[in-house]
Write a protein that binds this DNA or RNA. Structure first.
Lengths: 376, 376
DNA sequence: TTGTATGCGTTATCAA
DNA sequence: TTGATAACGCATACAA
């Protein structure tokens, strides 16, 4: 990506202490030693190590167990003792060591989520909802990035299992053979999401990519389109959608669909180039299904660039119903995927299993819906 | 957000076992008990609990210490013993318990990142780079969401400290008083980023939001604009940019700038409405600075919607230089923030401090640059 | 209501 | 090169 230069006189005050690879003209660096020797706030902590439960116990004049109880079972304590301990905890900024308690209890109060990438807003609704639901149950969420790389995936899974999380949520990720074996040997509850895998490791909540492809094709057919196009990613799920889309078109007696594949991740540029490719090959195409809203927005920009009116000359349908889909010009018809619900259900499943409670449905299809706006 | 319905006949096979709040017409649910009683892969593990180091030791006919050494100091072992242990580890899918080793070593090999939100692509480059750099040093990254809520922030910081990470990176987040006190008492290395706070907790790598506001104003002035507008978020850093922008305009003898504030997070819709607001109040505005690329893209869409040519009738500058900025119509002039470099430096700082090595610069300004494209 | 002893799984230290 | 021992910080079981 090209980095231009501003028109301002350079503001550089002093050269960076480390060799800078930055091209920035607005640049300064300084080192403050004082910030370390004299922190802006008085240290509550006289020692140089964080306090542990024994320190608090000493300060409060009780045993370590009483401090533990003050934290975990306050109702079992004499109110006065409780107050004394709580004061000590607050004034010493004591924070329990979760490594120790997790080891003791075999419960880390931690759930890990594995996803292919943080780039792109596709999974963010799901993550947000998962995080929120888990927090409410006192669990923390840890995020791991597989980066679409199957080779590194097993390593990441190993790193995750090391922390002994109470559950693992796989988001848009299919585990490799080695990964599956590790997960199963770990006995950690696993929820796979964003798809309906034929062979689930454990639990599953998602939707059918096949059904999506078919539904969008039939959506176009119902509106009288006969020349269908598609701008698609090229991962496994995307190919399922492409196949179903093409198959449904064929079943409706339509000519062959025109597909342009774009490399991951989805970008505006990919959508622009994808649509341009489709129209170059088959200018008679009147409807395109883009496999993400970002690609669809790129397609809208490209259509406008080419002087095509949407939806009169070209219908566009996206996938994901991102926040911005309602604000494009024209507003985007798109497939709504309820990431919030997936996150909620996945959290429920993990929490239940973690507490040895029954899980009513191990495999759930949450479906999808086509949000009809003005672009189709 | 309105959810329409598709035109397909419902594919519902069987009602969901849990009451569904989904509006989806494409919907099914099922439960598989077999998936639990008969996993698709033969269990390598005869017991129902994950194996520990003693189990491996027994299987390999050595002591637990030898297994530990095989993992952490393989060079100290007899090659034959090493091989035997490694075979046992692989066949049992043994994964060490990081809670136990972390407790023993007081090193969790974990770094936590705190950010206000995952929504919006602003911090993703930074996160990606931080994660990558830390992975290379054998650390894992854990992400925590503060959600712009100062009240919950202390709780999150407490939850993070509980895990005893080797470092904490704050991204676009200023800790509350209580949060700062907790962090300082914890003795965990902290890197604040995305800003140059006046009173840093510990280490710092960022850029000056004041300088950005001034630089963009001067960019517009240099191009001959006299009526400046701004579409901005309303957080603390955004207000600093607004003030600097207005101040620089005044210093150049320009009339008062017109500012529209939009609520977080940045959206296309916010950009559209923001620009509309600015133009409604002052139709004579010829240049707007949007405080994110997403807002800027919304502004481009709105400008086009209103029949304004960019940059002839209206100049637009964004902030962030997101991946899509080069593919908008027209390509977006924007302020480049080198999130990759911030992540890299933050990782270096944490790793150095974690290993008790000297950190050469505790406070670093990495600057920024204006990427000149066609929208201004 | 509060305290004592014990073990969670791992690894540094020392001894063989 | 390998093994025995102890300790990391906390919470359950039991005792007082």
């Amino acid at each position: 990506m090209a980095i231009g230069t501003g028109r301002l006189p350079p503001l550089q005050l002093r050269p960076n202490t480390t060799p800078s690879r930055s091209t920035s003209p607005y640049h300064l660096a300084w080192t403050t030693i004082a910030a370390l020797s004299a922190p802006p706030y008085p240290p509550v902590q006289p020692t140089d190590r964080p306090s542990k439960i024994q320190d608090v116990a000493r300060a409060a004049g009780v045993s370590a167990m009483t401090v533990s109880r003050a934290i975990n079972h306050p109702e079992r304590l004499n109110p006065e003792t409780l107050q004394r301990v709580r004061d000590a905890i607050a004034s010493m900024r004591y924070v329990p060591n979760a490594l120790a308690s997790g080891l003791r209890l075999s419960r880390a109060r931690l759930v890990a989520a594995l996803l292919p990438t943080l780039v792109g807003p596709v999974f963010q609704e799901l993550i947000q909802s998962l995080d929120h639901a888990l927090n409410q149950h006192g669990y923390q969420l840890m995020i791991g990035r597989t980066g679409y790389d199957a080779a590194q995936e097993a390593d990441l899974i190993r790193a995750i299992i090391q922390r002994r999380p109470d559950g693992i949520v796989m988001i848009g990720t299919a585990a490799s053979e080695e990964g599956r074996a590790l997960l199963q040997a770990s006995r950690i509850p696993v929820v796979e999401t964003w798809d309906l895998a034929d062979t689930a490791i454990d639990m599953l909540v998602g939707f059918s990519h096949h059904a999506i492809g078919a539904a969008v094709a039939e959506h176009f057919v119902a509106k009288g389109h006969r020349q269908l196009g598609m701008v698609s990613g090229d991962d496994a799920r995307a190919r399922v959608r492409v196949a179903a889309y093409a198959q449904a078109a064929q079943a409706a007696g339509l000519p062959e669909v025109t597909v342009a594949f774009t490399p991951a991740p989805s970008t505006l540029g990919g959508g622009r180039r994808g649509l341009a490719d489709v129209l170059l090959k088959h200018p008679e195409v009147t409807a395109v299904f883009c496999s993400s809203d970002t690609l669809a927005l790129g397609a809208l920009i490209e259509a406008q660039h080419q002087g095509l009116r949407v939806p009169q000359d070209l219908a566009v349908v996206g996938l994901g119903d991102q926040e911005f889909a309602k604000d494009t010009a024209p507003p985007l018809t798109t497939v709504r995927l309820d990431g919030t619900r997936i996150g909620q259900l996945a959290a429920d499943m993990i929490v239940a299993r973690s507490l040895d409670q029954p899980v009513d449905a191990h495999h759930v299809d949450i479906g999808f819906a086509i949000t009809q706006r003005s672009s189709s």
